[in-house]
Amino acid sequence: MRKSFIMAAAAAAIAFTAPAFATEMVFTSWGGTTQDAQKAAWADKFTAETKINVLQDGPTDYGKIKAMVESGNVNWDVVDVEGDYAVQAGNKGMLEKLDFKVIDKSKLDPRFVTDYSVGSFYYSFIIGFNADAVGAEGPKTWADLFDTTKFPGKRTFYKWSAPGVIEAALLADGVTPDKLYPLDLDRAFKKLDTIKKDIIWWSGGAQSQQLLASAEAPYGMFWNGRLTALKATGVNVGESWEQNITAADALVVPKSAKNRDLAMKFIALATSAQGQADMATATGYAPVNTQSGQLMDAALRKTLPDQQGASQVNADMRYWAEHRDEIGERWYAWQAK
């Protein structure tokens, strides 16, 4: 009896919300200036070409993806996720296989291509500081950023468990880049403990910009594109690319997404040489399409993460994909302590 009522209610609900024809799809990313750029470089062009309206949602939330896939009610079509998550979720069967008949992968940097994902953009975690608040001489190295006597006050780091902060802590503690993996978590957390009370966590890119611009946290670790955007608004930002830590975002399609075919077409446009060039120009992140460089302003091209002369450390996406859950568990328990 209860069951039949539920069915009736469900039927009523379906009637109530009859899904519109596929005239729209949903793109989910991290919000703020990055998503604005993605909208301009990809979504608006896609709409112009196909007349399909692309709804913007966000921020990306892996729990939501899991809940949607488990319930079979998936309303995100293309999602911008972190590279390590893409590898892991693909292996767990949470993602649709990409259709490489639609998406041309021959021109894409192969480091960022799997059966389930292609690169979205390529970024570096770098050191940034508010030069108005601390002067031109800000922290140069990760060791500086972890040194509270040389640089007193608050510093901001990425809140979520993801490639970046742990690597920075180990580098600050003197681990050489070639010895970084497998990650020595005990050592990393011990190093992080030394500055824990001085950390303000940023949970999204826009928040990191706000913290730095208001000098709420006058230094910290940032996605390089967010500092580029911040400088463009006239804030006096200093940055250091010393041992910048690179990682890539990926574009994925959650399993049983409602508009799978549209999603493939969208990704094809987003990873095209022009799509990647426009995105890179707008954000200061590097393109994943090897042909994009030619379409960009040469001077600007030189400032992007993949052209930086400073020493660079690549975060190991495969390592992270394998250990994501256990690191996450320790990370959040440590944060809550």
Binding site: I6, A9, A10, A12, A13, I14, F16, T17, S71, N73, N75
Partner: peptide, 9 residues
């Protein structure tokens, strides 16, 4: 479970 999530109802 019953498909009401994200609906007006």
């Amino acid at each position: 479970k019953i498909g009401l999530n994200g609906t007006l109802l």
